[in-house]
Simulated assay, not measured.
Amino acid sequence: MDGHIAAKRDAARERLAARDGVLVAFSGGVDSSVVAALAHDALGEAAVACTAKSETLPDAELDDARQVAAEIGIRHEVVEFSELEDPNFVQNDDERCYHCRTMRLGAMYDHARSLGIDTVCDGTNASDPGEGHRPGLRAVAELDVLSPLLAHDVTKEEVREIARDYGLSVADKPAMACLSSRIPTGLEVTEERLTRVERAESLLREWGFEQFRVRDHDGLARIEVGEDELDAALDPAFVEAAREHCEAAGFDHVTLDLHGYATGSVSPAGEGAADEGAADDAETDSDGSDETDPVTNVFEAEYPSR
């Protein structure tokens, strides 16, 4: 590993070692996994990884978080709460990520106090603040969350390099934002919409797609995959499976976006990568960027509903 990156890693670990104990807001993405590994190295049993389970967290992501925590060897706990109890979150405006992160980190602090831990830390890295409108980061600052990667100027690519050095299986894992990021800004977040998105995305996971989203445009499923995976998405067998699976999940119509996967393709202009960029960490966030018309830039011929 490059000596400059190693020095940043060591400084972040020392910052954690100075605490009596820490609770890591842990999604199982690369950023929070690196913080968990550093915390475990620095504090041993005094470090706890904690995942917040709610309607916006896919079950598969919780399973992945458990697996990565086991790789690291860190104690892993799960707390449960519901964003859908907050009308500010449900209305899904451009501050949704702020409301989500405030609730999520609040649950983390409550659990930390129950364990006698004063410090909650997250995986915000030095690349995150420059990635557009990031209301979730305001919640991190307001709640005085410790962000060791940000404090020591560790960028996203450097985080991945540290993860590789630790041998973490998530070193090259794409960011995975919370399910609410699939719903266009202004369209209410409901359990029905979250459930059908999770069910639809389970198919893409089963078919081996690595970078994907199913955007829910009020009953229209817009499938996004990485540009290098578009050919696989046009396979007639997948076309038929996607149509049938998405309709069974509750969608009225199914489309494929020929522009491929893009962070934040359903949210306010100017958010760019927004909180999806940090989504793998601060406990799964959400994405941002231009809210698009439900049928703009999509390919429908292969995916007509029956």
Rank of each mutant, 00 (worst) to 15 (best):
I5D: 04
K8V: 02
D10C: 01
D10E: 12
E14L: 15
L16A: 03
V22C: 01
F26S: 02
S27T: 13
V30L: 05
D31C: 01
S32Q: 07
A39T: 04
V48L: 12
A49T: 12
T56V: 15
L57M: 08
A60K: 07
A60S: 12
Q67T: 15
I72H: 01
H76M: 08
C100F: 08
R101S: 04
A112K: 05
L115G: 13
N125I: 00
N125L: 01
A126G: 07
D128M: 07
G132N: 03
D144P: 01
S147N: 05
A151P: 08
E157S: 08
V159W: 06
E161Q: 09
A175W: 05
S180Q: 05
S181L: 00
R182H: 12
E191D: 12
R199A: 09
E201C: 10
L204C: 09
W207Q: 11
G208K: 12
V214D: 02
L220W: 04
E229N: 08
E229I: 09
L234I: 06
V239C: 10
A242D: 11
R243L: 09
E247R: 13
A248T: 15
L256Y: 06
L256W: 06
L256S: 15
G260F: 02
A262G: 06
G270D: 05
A278Q: 02
E283T: 14
E283C: 03
S289K: 03
T292Y: 13
D293R: 09
N297G: 11
F299N: 14
S305F: 12
